[in-house]
């Protein structure tokens, strides 16, 4: 009985962390699908979101929900400008250059955050802080529950956006075929910027949800590299895939942390990633087509 409870506990904790991986992975996937760029700074956008929420909620003293909302709005605007001012300049350069550009941006974000917010980990109060729910021996912190609910809610909103709104459909079209979308009168460049805006917003939400569990610090963004594993597991092309991948990585990590010697936990995500890539070089749900010659 105790054992079962323990297992469920591990799975629940893994799912909560996994949701965060999933959200960051979602940002990767959105940007990759639309612009064929991998944003290595996705984790750092999450970090910026966390710090911004800290300023708004803990410093300015805004209500948690208002602070949450404003953070998302600000970060979306930031993402939009990032694409419009920086990334648009490198369209047409090799993929490699664009990787490096986002890596460089990550460095800048980390350093800027260090200068503005310092290098100590910070936190802010949430309506859930310290509250614990007990389901017959299985203890779930309200913080973890908020991550689960927040992730599901966010995904529902995104799903409705992509399937029901004109803009969402236009974005999907651009991700299928840029040139065709352009000819159909879809403003592809604006769509790119909007994709960045949405990705930054999702990352910010992940940062705010994660903050009470893991604290916010400058190196929070390195979590983004684990989210890669999630995105790859999900095939780097599908939104549900990214989330499922995230949850799988989260659970595997928790199980590894429980059953392997200390220190191996952080490497499991990468081991899973490498294993998957070796077996299926294009990910589980492949988005890659063979080049036509």
């Amino acid at each position: 009985m105790l054992e079962t409870a323990r297992v469920i506990q591990i799975i629940l904790n893994g799912t909560a962390v996994g949701c965060i991986y999933g959200l960051v992975a979602l940002g990767f996937v959105l940007i990759y699908k639309t612009t064929e760029t991998v944003n290595f700074a996705q984790g750092d956008l999450m970090m910026l979101g966390g710090f911004l929420a800290f300023t708004l909620i803990a410093k300015v003293g805004l209500d948690y929900w208002l602070g949450f909302l404003l953070t998302i709005v600000f970060m979306a605007a930031f993402g939009y400008l990032l694409d419009a001012l920086v990334l648009r300049r490198v369209i047409g350069q090799p993929q490699f250059a664009v990787f490096m550009l986002t890596l460089g941006l990550g460095f800048i974000f980390r350093a800027a955050a260090g200068i503005v917010w310092g290098y100590d980990a910070v936190s802010f109060p949430t309506p859930f802080t310290g509250r614990v729910l007990d389901f017959g021996g299985i203890v779930v912190s309200a913080n973890n529950l908020s991550i689960l609910v927040g992730t599901v809610g966010l995904c529902a909103v995104l799903y409705l956006f992509f399937s029901r709104t004109r803009l969402g459909v236009a974005m999907q079209a651009s991700s299928q075929n840029q040139l065709a979308a352009y000819y159909m009168g879809i403003p592809v460049r604006t769509v790119f910027s909007l994709t960045w805006a949405i990705s930054a917003a999702v990352a910010a939400a992940a940062g705010v949800l994660l903050a009470p569990v893991a604290l916010v610090d400058v190196n929070m963004g390195f979590l983004g590299f684990k989210a890669f594993a999630a995105a790859v597991l999900g095939g780097f092309g599908s939104i549900p895939g990214a989330l499922i991948g995230g949850v799988v990585v989260g659970i595997v990590e928790q199980v590894a942390g429980y059953s392997l010697p200390a220190g191996f936990r952080d490497v499991t995500a990468n081991a899973v990633l490498l294993g998957v890539l070796v077996l299926r070089p294009q990910g589980i749900l492949s988005q890659t087509m063979r080049k036509k010659v």
């Binding site: 920086v86 300049r89 490198v90 550009l101 890596l103 460095f107 980390r110 260090g114 200068i115």
Partner: peptide, 17 residues
């Protein structure tokens, strides 16, 4: 603090652009 990595990042970005 963080001047050095940010300069690395900035210079990398400027070169690529």
């Amino acid at each position: 603090p963080g001047l050095e990595p940010s300069l690395f990042g900035l210079i990398l970005v400027l070169f690529i652009i």
